[in-house]
Amino acid sequence: MELPVTALSDHRFDVNLSLLFTELPLLERPAAAAAAGFTAVELWWPWPDDPTPPAAELTALADALDAAGTRLVGLNFYAGRLPGPDRGALSVPGTESERFRANVDVAAGFAQSVGCRALNALYGNRVEGVAPGVQDALALENLALAARAADRAGAVLLVEPLNALESPHYPLVTAADAVAVVDKVNAATGLGNARLLLDLYHLAMGGEDLTAVIDRYGAGAGHVQIADAPGRGAPGTGGLDVDALLGRLRATGYDGWTGLEYRPAGASADSFGWLTRH
């Protein structure tokens, strides 16, 4: 199927402040993103050791976003140690899933307070000695809980596939894997607010045909993230034709935010040349 290519200026880009501008303290990153020309940002859960941080810390982050004039457009629920060995908590029996449940209303409430409309719930790694079916049942229960909280906050719930090379114990490694979970959550809640998070870097590293994935799932994606592959650097540092992929995505009808979730080679502020050239 031939689709027209659109300019990068047709896209809405946001900056992931958990990978970019990390040379600065958290509360200084929104202003740095604004100084680089961005009006929107996204975040992993900013307190990986604390699913229920003090209200003062949530308020301070909200104030920093507001003072910078940046909108938070994507936020992860508590996902364990990230970056680190964890890839989510919601399917992990015991303490971790309890921490996830404790975080659900906190994260959704914060998202609502700052106008964030997308909440990402990382599935979690397989646990040795626990049957996959047991973890999947727990995951569905917790994802339904998160979907309902997201709905109350006026947000969508995102389900993200990762790549097996970097996350060998994570069970959702294709777009189809994640969409199957999305469908189960929507069937369980009846809300229809669970969506695929389409991360082109992870899918490329997993060997998927990105044009086929975009054609099949792009229009219904709840959020998109990009980095070049391999290396997870800025577009132009790897082998992906990011311009063409984003043009194809736009042509499918996707008109949401595209998160820049890459690792800069140097200072974050100097990593946007690929974008300003367009």
Score class of each variant (00 low, 15 high):
Glu208Met: 10
Ser268Cys: 05
Glu261Asn: 05
Gly218Lys: 07
Ser91Cys: 15
Ala244Glu: 13
His223Val: 02
Pro46Ile: 11
Asp14Trp: 05
Leu200Gly: 11
Ala147Tyr: 12
Leu246Asn: 09
Ala102Glu: 13
Ala180Cys: 08
Ser113Gly: 11
Leu43Phe: 00
Leu165Ile: 13
Leu200Trp: 12
Glu160Asp: 07
Ala269Tyr: 03
Ile214Val: 15
Glu23Ile: 12
Phe272His: 02
Met205Trp: 12
Leu260Ala: 00
Arg87His: 10
Ala102Thr: 02
Thr6Asn: 00
Leu165Gln: 15
Gly238Asn: 13
Trp274Phe: 09
Ala219Met: 11
Ala64Gly: 02
Arg250Met: 07
Ala194Met: 03
Glu2Tyr: 06
Leu172Gln: 02
Trp274Pro: 01
His169Phe: 15
Thr174Asn: 03
Asp49Trp: 03
Leu24Glu: 13
Gly256Thr: 08
Arg71Asp: 14
Val127Pro: 13
Ala219Thr: 11
Glu96Thr: 01
Ala137Gly: 07
Pro83Glu: 10
Glu57Asp: 15
Ile214Glu: 06
Ala35Tyr: 05
Arg148Ile: 06
Ala155Trp: 08
Ala265Val: 01
Asp183Pro: 01
Pro4Phe: 14
Asn193Ser: 09
Asp215Pro: 08
Ser91Ala: 15
Asp86Ser: 09
Thr39Ala: 13
Gly207Asn: 08
Ser91Met: 13
Gly247His: 08
Gly220Met: 12
Ala150Ile: 07
Leu138Pro: 10
Asp177Arg: 08
Arg29Ile: 10
Arg277Ser: 09
Asn76Gln: 01
Ala234Trp: 03
Asp199Glu: 07
Ala121Tyr: 00
Gly222His: 10
Arg87Thr: 12
Ala164His: 15
Val179Cys: 10
Ala212Ile: 12
Ala89Ser: 14
Gly259Glu: 01
Gly88Trp: 00
Thr211His: 12
Gly256His: 04
Asn16Ile: 07
Ser97His: 14
Leu20His: 01
His223Gln: 14
Leu26Val: 13
Pro83Asn: 09
Leu210Thr: 12
Ala147Ser: 14
Glu96Val: 01
Pro25Ser: 11
Thr211Pro: 04
Ala62Arg: 14
Asp105His: 14
Pro4Asn: 10
Leu191Val: 06
Tyr254Ala: 12
Gly192Gln: 00
Ala150Met: 09
